[in-house]
């Protein structure tokens, strides 16, 4: 065995951790897509599939967390590797939360379907879903590639999703004030919007972790501005 064999072994394990995080992220993004489709198309079967699939994400979180803790304990990583593994533990928890938000959206879809509501066209929701999903995908990409600039760019996009949420809130408020019979449905629309807004927040967290891994700088909670 060559002297650097233990390091090679460690780097193989790190590559495996990256692969599993990518797999988990793809699964989480797919659940968000499915849940929003189930809501928009009032597709009960799809909504139930989302609720059932969440268990897989929970299981992936446990496995990735165990793998990361094992690497910390056995390999005692330093510098960038240390930052990567610490961040991976946080990100797997964020991705599990994304799955929970997908379930919340699917449950809102289920309620609407059972109430036999007439679907309302909500381009804001579709736009939010598209943006939140893209943020999630880019944040993970930034994290896995160690691209700090992309991580920062993702964080900046959060404001756009917040603005859409605000806009959707006002629209639903107008519906509710105009016709109190829409209150039940509107609350579900608002629930979906809030969940998508939180998915964007989680993507922002991942973007911040990508900056931490790439540059060794903490940017969350305005830490970078305070230290500069």
């Amino acid at each position: 065995m060559s002297p650097d064999a233990p390091f090679r072994h460690f780097h193989d394990q790190l590559a495996d951790l990256k692969r599993r995080l990518l797999e988990m992220s793809e699964r989480a993004e797919a659940l968000i897509d499915m849940s929003v489709e189930a809501f928009n198309d009032q597709d009960l079967e799809k909504a139930e599939a989302v609720i059932a699939a969440d268990h897989d994400l929970d299981q992936m979180e446990i496995e990735i967390e165990e793998q990361a803790i094992e690497l910390l304990a056995l390999q005692q990583p330093m510098a960038r590797d240390l930052r990567f593994i610490i961040s991976a533990i946080k990100i797997t928890s964020d991705l599990e939360r994304v799955g929970d938000h997908a379930v919340n959206i699917a449950q809102a879809a289920t309620r609407l379907i059972r109430q036999r509501s007439t679907p309302r066209p909500t381009p804001e929701l579709e736009d939010m879903a598209r943006r939140a999903r893209q943020m999630l995908s880019e944040a993970l990409d930034a994290f896995l590639r160690g691209d700090g600039a992309l991580g920062r760019a993702v964080c900046l996009k959060d404001d756009q999703v917040d603005a859409l949420h605000e806009s959707l809130f006002r629209i639903q408020l107008t519906h509710m004030l105009a016709d109190p019979r829409t209150i039940n449905d509107s609350l579900d629309y608002l629930a979906v919007s809030r969940n998508l807004e939180r998915v964007a927040d989680l993507a922002t967290n991942i973007g911040e972790d990508a900056v931490f891994v790439a540059e060794g700088k903490t940017i969350k909670h305005g830490a970078e501005r305070r230290n500069s």
Binding site: F7, H11, M78, A79, R80, D81, L82, E215, G216
Partner: peptide, 16 residues
């Protein structure tokens, strides 16, 4: 040990 500034230090600490 967490955020070295030099690429050579980073490479040494991470076995690359």
């Amino acid at each position: 040990f967490t955020s070295p500034r030099d690429a050579q230090t980073e490479a040494y600490l991470t076995g690359r």
